[in-house]
Design a protein around this nucleic acid. Structure first.
Length: 348
DNA sequence: AATGACGTCAACCGCTCATCA
DNA sequence: TTGATGAGCGGTTGACGTCAT
């Protein structure tokens, strides 16, 4: 257990921060900014290493830190995002204004511990009624609750990234968003029976209550890289697409999901409201969002979550709780507004 | 009241990546 | 090109509070 180079040079205090130290750090940063963290301790008169100062600032002292318990909306968002990006806490945190990666990580770890305790056997499966695609994914680290695993400790960053099936294709495709991807075509069945243990204890958004995100795949550039094409989900998806009469040469691209999650704005709560309770019930759109969003939530979250209006909801549809396309989604598909769709989600 | 189990959370550690000389 | 350095990230640890027995 060595110390960091920045901590070796001088005696540095470790452990909990005192109010005095906090005050010094806050005073220094608010007047000078932090610039180079390694210089902060000395200039601020602290016997800490720069790294410790940085951590303290980021995780605790920052003025925009939002403390307190996670709201149900935040919980759902975390769960959904985790299902998509895995243990990329910083990435997840970037979509929860005022929350830190550490906080989210702690939340997840404690939550997942409870989950493991409650769930005797891992259940992970991926099922789709797509006539051309069926895939199964298991998660070694999260008890099968979501097909994407979080990173386990590893010194191999490449493996760490590539262990997540998502990354094998999305790194090349410039979209870090996939967990399990199952392609289906509009000709295929529109129902999606999902087997596996119903998880009564799951918070909304987990297990088969997880939202299955649908992307209009006919909009954007293809998964260009060979790696992407080799991904089992992608390849089966593209194979399915290749059979499509009405989407010849269709390109397959996912809009930036995480930004899309941000664009959801209302988190998942509004979806629940709109659809009568269950996570992922039905579709949503701006109008519904506006109507359904609770004023108190608006107040609480302010503009923060709505900042990422980058994703036209025409590109994002959702299943309802019975894993059946909602009428409006169905209409959209039948009208040809969406050439083809990708479904994805924690249990997709 | 005592004690052990459990949960939460702040902080640390080790690692990788980016940058720069 | 390479090594040093700093920043950032994710995993882990440990202190502390709470709850159950």
């Amino acid at each position: 257990m060595g110390h960091h180079s920045c901590c070796n040079q001088q005696k540095v205090k470790r452990g909990l921060w005192s109010p005095e130290e906090d005050e010094k750090l806050v005073r220094y940063i608010t007047t000078h900014g932090y610039g180079c963290w390694s210089e902060v301790p000395e200039k601020a008169g602290l016997q800490r290493c720069g790294k410790s100062c940085r951590l303290r600032w980021i995780n605790y002292l920052r003025p925009d830190i939002r403390r307190g318990r996670f709201t149900p909306e935040e919980e759902k968002l975390i769960i959904s995002l985790h299902a998509i990006v895995g243990n990329r806490w910083a990435h997840i945190a970037s979509h929860l204004p005022g929350r830190t990666d550490n906080e989210i990580k702690n939340y997840w770890n404690s939550w997942i511990k409870k989950k493991i305790r409650k769930t005797p056997a891992p259940v992970a499966n991926v099922t789709t009624t797509s006539s051309t695609t069926t895939a199964t994914s298991t998660s070694p680290t999260n008890n099968g609750l979501a097909p994407c695993s979080g990173s386990t400790a590893t010194s191999d960053v490449h493996r760490r990234r590539m262990q997540h099936p998502t990354f094998s294709c999305t790194v090349a495709a410039d979209h870090l968003q996939l967990d399990a991807i199952i392609g289906v075509h509009q000709q295929n069945s529109l129902t999606l029976p999902i087997s596996g243990g119903a998880d009564q204890d799951s918070p909304p958004g987990m297990a088969h209550h997880c939202p299955l995100f649908m992307f209009d795949t006919g909009i954007c550039p293809p998964f260009a890289s060979p790696a992407a094409q080799q991904h089992p989900f992608i390849s089966s998806f593209t194979a399915a697409m290749a059979e499509a009469d009405d989407a010849p040469g269709a390109c397959y691209h996912l809009p930036p999901l995480v930004d899309g999650m941000g664009a959801m704005g209302m988190g998942m709560e509004a979806m629940d409201d709109h659809c009568g309770g269950g996570m992922g019930n039905g579709c949503y759109g701006d109008e519904q969002r506006q109507q359904r969003r609770r004023p108190e939530l608006e107040e609480e979250e302010g503009e923060q979550l709505g900042q990422h209006e980058q994703w036209d909801e025409e590109q994002l549809l959702m299943w309802d709780d019975q894993e059946v396309l909602t009428p409006s989604n169905m209409e959209a598909m039948q009208s040809g507004a969406h050439h083809s769709l990708l479904f994805m989600g924690p249990n997709a």
